[in-house]
């Protein structure tokens, strides 16, 4: 239970970070609180969109999905089931890979670091780790 609780709290934190970056992209909150200025360089770069979709919006949707999954996995009927944890780990794993790609772009293509993106990177990595720990504690679901 502690792992899914941790995943829920981390996902909520990630959701707020992504929402903050997305609201910035919508021009609703002025400038970003980012000491180096790297956040704006990253957020305003052509790589801030993937297939026409804002990366920050992908983050909002991804974290919202993780939050729903982790909260659902805490409910009495599902707390002992393995599949919510499997879905959680799968989605978080995709998030980790995507974050890795974005961090590569920041370091080697854009040459600027967005602190909020790095913070989100740590959050998604932490969600992935607690999701894996959650899977370790549970036996495989019986199919019959």
């Amino acid at each position: 239970m502690i792992h899914r609780m941790s995943a829920a709290l981390l996902s909520l934190t990630g959701l707020f970070i992504s929402a903050y970056l997305y609201l910035y992209k919508l021009g609703r909150i002025g400038s970003l609180a980012c000491g180096t200025g790297g956040c704006e360089a990253v957020q305003l770069s052509p790589w801030s969109r993937v297939a026409g979709v804002e990366v920050a919006l992908i983050g909002v949707l991804g974290y919202a999905g993780l939050l729903v999954l982790s909260l659902a996995g805490l409910q009495p009927g599902l707390a002992g089931r393995r599949w919510p944890g499997t879905l959680l780990a799968g989605l978080a794993g995709i998030g980790v890979l995507f974050t890795g790609y974005l961090t590569y772009l920041e370091l080697f293509v854009i040459h600027a670091i967005c602190r909020w993106c790095i913070a989100s990177g740590f959050v998604i990595l932490a969600v992935f780790i607690v999701a894996l720990l959650d899977l370790r504690r549970l036996p495989r679901d019986r199919t019959s």
Binding site: K25, I29, G30
Partner: peptide, 8 residues
């Protein structure tokens, strides 16, 4: 906040 959009 139009100024933020101009900044963008």
């Amino acid at each position: 906040n139009a100024a933020a959009i101009f900044r963008k």
